[in-house]
């Protein structure tokens, strides 16, 4: 199939309050560039699915909210007129049709003739490498196969944007990791606009050009995977995306001070500060100089790396991953050195 680019999607002031008064989404602005893969990441109930359904046209935003595709207002258009492709969490494959009929369905309602739509459906099936399944009933497919058929069906209509609602939530971990790579390659090859909802941070980091971290109906941070991972905007983002260490203390005169010691950094004075960093953003140093000094509590050898749990004098635990060549034993005192630019101060 020919590569194509999708539409730019813009949300302006889109909030959602349901009929029973619960507020799922605070009014927010967001734009997705044409061809970009944007991941909406957050715990369940954070409003990410509601946001996706507003883009799709399955929910309408509260008064004043607007949805634009390539600058054209589509807020009043129902989903069937928006030309989006959607992959549902349950896949929503039609049990009364076989695989090919499912994939061709979007073309069928667009009035494409039977022979032509079968040919187009087969093309997409081939691209997804599931052409052998064309005649199967949906009930005869495995979870991973269903997932691919759902994706093929959404792509077959050449949508302006593809919207994926936790498409891998129903699959087991190993399959998820495998399909993650496939979906990533596919979305990049087609350079189609994609909005991907997930609560799995690994999926978000692997797939997103940008990640929107959401919490209780609001956007907590928007950024590239690297930004979100290494410089989380706040403690929530930090804790939701990967393992995070957190040291609390103060900043005075260009030095961060906590119970474990002090460390130089470039920041204005703060009476209360928290230093956030990832396990792999720090190094352990033998024979510690001044700086931050912690006591080793536990060492887990993991082959390529070892995971060291350390403890500050005020009993805060810090996890650091280091190369295994360092001989470390519980009880030792180690110096903690942070890579510049790989921590955040909040």
């Amino acid at each position: 199939m020919k590569p194509r680019t999708g539409a730019a999607v813009t949300l302006a002031g889109c909030g959602k309050t349901f009929a029973d008064g619960t507020r799922a989404l605070a009014p927010l602005d967001l734009s997705v560039a044409a061809g970009e893969t944007l991941v909406l990441l957050g715990p369940s109930g954070c409003g990410k699915t509601t946001l996706l359904r507003i883009i799709a046209g399955l929910e309408s935003p509260d008064a004043g909210g607007r949805v634009l595709f390539d600058g054209a207002d589509v807020t009043a258009l129902p989903i069937e007129k928006r030309n989006v492709g959607m992959v549902f969490q349950s896949y929503a494959l039609f049990p009364n049709m076989n695989v090919r009929e499912n994939v061709a369905y979007g073309l069928r309602v667009r009035g494409v003739g039977k022979a032509e739509r079968s040919r187009l459906a087969d093309e997409v099936l081939e691209m997804m490498r599931i052409d052998a399944l064309a005649e199967r009933r949906i009930t005869q497919l495995s979870g991973g196969q269903r997932q691919r058929v759902a994706l093929a069906r959404a792509l077959a209509v050449r949508p302006k944007a593809i919207l994926l609602d936790e498409p891998m939530a129903a699959l087991d971990a190993a399959l998820r990791e495998h399909l993650r790579g496939e979906i990533d390659a596919l979305l990049r090859r087609l350079s189609i606009t994609a909005v991907y909802v997930t609560h799995d941070q690994a999926e978000a980091l692997a797939l997103g050009d940008r990640i929107v971290v959401m919490r209780e109906g609001e956007i907590a941070q928007v950024g590239t995977p690297r930004e979100v991972y290494e410089r989380p905007a706040d403690a929530f983002v930090a804790s939701f995306v990967g393992t995070t260490n957190r040291l609390e203390g103060t900043v005075r005169g260009g030095r961060f001070a906590c119970a474990a010691g002090t460390m130089a950094l470039d920041a204005p004075d703060m009476p209360k500060a928290a230093l956030l960093f990832r396990p792999e953003a720090a190094r352990l140093v033998l024979d510690p100089p001044a700086g931050l000094v912690l006591k080793v509590e536990q060492v887990q050898f993991q082959g390529a790396r070892q995971k060291v749990t350390l403890c500050t004098p005020d009993s805060v635990r810090v996890v650091v991953e280091t190369p295994p060549d360092l001989e470390i034993a519980p009880g030792m005192l180690m110096g903690l050195a942070l890579d510049p630019n790989r921590f955040s101060l909040v």
């Binding site: 799709a56 069937e80 007129k81 030309n83 959607m86 549902f88 929503a92 309602v109």
Partner: peptide, 12 residues
């Protein structure tokens, strides 16, 4: 869910 699926594909 099936209806939403069909709607997303353009069915009235």
């Amino acid at each position: 869910a099936l209806e939403e699926g069909a709607a997303s594909l353009g069915a009235s």
